[in-house]
């Protein structure tokens, strides 16, 4: 299977490298986590404070949501790693199909 950990004969090199990688990964995760909390706060602020029109707030919150989903996928669910091309392709195709469907339902289905 593609995502099994390879076992090498020389564990030393491997572990060093992995440690470095993991630390790096951890840093990214902490950064994105902070960013996500920050974005959530902004979303609350957009609704709670300031008299912004709903034509601004609704798309704005949706945009923040999309950014968060992307963070989630790439930094927490490891889509940034190699070997995730197929899942990425299917995710985006599915999102596209879903989007077109929703678009059609809000535009050309008359109520």
């Amino acid at each position: 299977m593609a995502n099994q950990q390879p076992t090498t004969g020389n564990p030393k090199v491997d572990i060093e490298y992995r440690r470095k990688k993991n630390a790096e990964e951890m840093r990214y995760q902490v950064v994105t986590f902070t960013l996500m909390i920050f974005l959530t706060l902004i979303a609350f602020a957009a609704v709670g404070f300031g008299d912004l029109s709903k034509w601004f707030t609704v798309p704005f919150i949706l945009l923040l949501a999309v950014v968060q989903v992307i963070f989630q996928l790439y930094y927490f669910m490891h889509m940034s790693h190699k070997g995730h091309e197929a899942p990425a392709l299917f995710l985006y195709s599915g999102a596209l199909v879903g989007f077109v469907t929703v678009l059609a339902f809000v535009t050309i289905v008359w109520w």
């Binding site: 469907t101 059609a104 339902f105 289905v109 008359w110 109520w111």
Partner: peptide
Amino acid sequence: GNTVIWEHLFWI
């Protein structure tokens, strides 16, 4: 409700 919703879902 709306009968056209079925048509869209069916043809999608």
